[in-house]
Computed example of a mutant assay.
Amino acid sequence: MHHADARTGTGADPSDATGTEDTLELRLTEELLALLGDGPAAPAAADASALVGSPGTWSPVTTSAGEFRLVAVEAERDLATISRWMNDPAVAAFWELAGPEAVTAAHLRQQLAGDGRSVPCLGVLDRSPMSYWEIYRADLDPLARHYPARPHDVGVHLLIGAVGNRGRGIGSLLLRAVSDLVLDNRPLCGRIVAEPDLRNTPSVSAFLSAGFRFCGEVDLPDKRAALMVRDRAHRDQL
């Protein structure tokens, strides 16, 4: 679930499995190179609204499981809850943030102190916090080194914290809802991407059921991932 980083290691070329429409090379503008650390220093204050925006202000959506909305994480309010979820063995196996609250606190601090490329949120279903999300600009993330990124690609990381909401199709339902929220609120975004651990079969299955397609395997520095993509153009068909 972590972002890919820029350590050594090159991924398998997922374009082999995605068709010619996914082989568009990402043009590395000076701004993008700066954000990825390969160019001049990035501006001191990035315009966060031009990156991911403010998912916590997006309207709630009605799903078959109830009303769902994203709420911006507040560390003081949410740390204990998110840390408890991170210590669930099923979550810890892939997020690798188990341990004292300080471990999760450091991760959240990095997210909250960033330039807006990644925004941490709680997923609230019928007023009950039950999941954790990171909505991020995949094309401005080190992940872009490992797949044929396109400008304004948005990525999602998630965990379902409440055990009672696992294995009932809730994950797929909410993945579809959140990807629809992104597409509705970020008009320049043409597709949503994700890179769950290839070993995490329930997660991969949830993405498939949510209208994502499997575009190949990608070697990231900390895992072998399944590259999942949901296209704006096909959102009503899948």
Rank of each mutant, 00 (worst) to 15 (best):
residue 37 G to N: 09
residue 39 G to M: 02
residue 39 G to I: 05
residue 39 G to N: 03
residue 40 P to S: 11
residue 41 A to H: 13
residue 44 A to C: 10
residue 44 A to F: 12
residue 46 A to I: 11
residue 46 A to V: 12
residue 48 A to N: 13
residue 51 L to Q: 15
residue 51 L to Y: 12
residue 51 L to G: 11
residue 54 S to A: 15
residue 54 S to R: 12
residue 55 P to M: 09
residue 55 P to L: 04
residue 57 T to L: 12
residue 57 T to G: 10
residue 57 T to W: 07
residue 60 P to C: 08
residue 61 V to I: 10
residue 63 T to I: 07
residue 63 T to V: 07
residue 63 T to M: 07
residue 65 A to Y: 08
residue 66 G to T: 01
residue 67 E to R: 15
residue 68 F to T: 07
residue 68 F to G: 05
residue 68 F to H: 09
residue 70 L to A: 09
residue 71 V to H: 11
residue 71 V to E: 15
residue 72 A to Y: 10
residue 73 V to N: 00
residue 76 E to A: 15
residue 77 R to M: 12
residue 77 R to K: 14
residue 79 L to M: 10
residue 80 A to W: 07
residue 82 I to K: 02
residue 82 I to Q: 00
residue 82 I to Y: 04
residue 85 W to T: 00
residue 85 W to A: 00
residue 86 M to D: 06
residue 87 N to E: 02
residue 88 D to E: 14
residue 88 D to P: 01
residue 89 P to C: 04
residue 90 A to R: 04
residue 92 A to V: 06
residue 92 A to M: 04
residue 93 A to H: 14
residue 95 W to S: 00
residue 95 W to I: 01
residue 98 A to E: 02
residue 98 A to G: 08
residue 99 G to H: 01
residue 99 G to C: 02
residue 100 P to W: 05
residue 106 A to E: 10
residue 106 A to P: 04
residue 108 L to Q: 01
residue 110 Q to F: 06
residue 110 Q to R: 15
residue 110 Q to D: 15
residue 111 Q to V: 05
residue 112 L to A: 06
residue 113 A to N: 13
residue 113 A to Q: 14
residue 116 G to L: 08
residue 117 R to Y: 11
residue 120 P to E: 10
residue 121 C to A: 13
residue 122 L to F: 03
residue 123 G to Y: 01
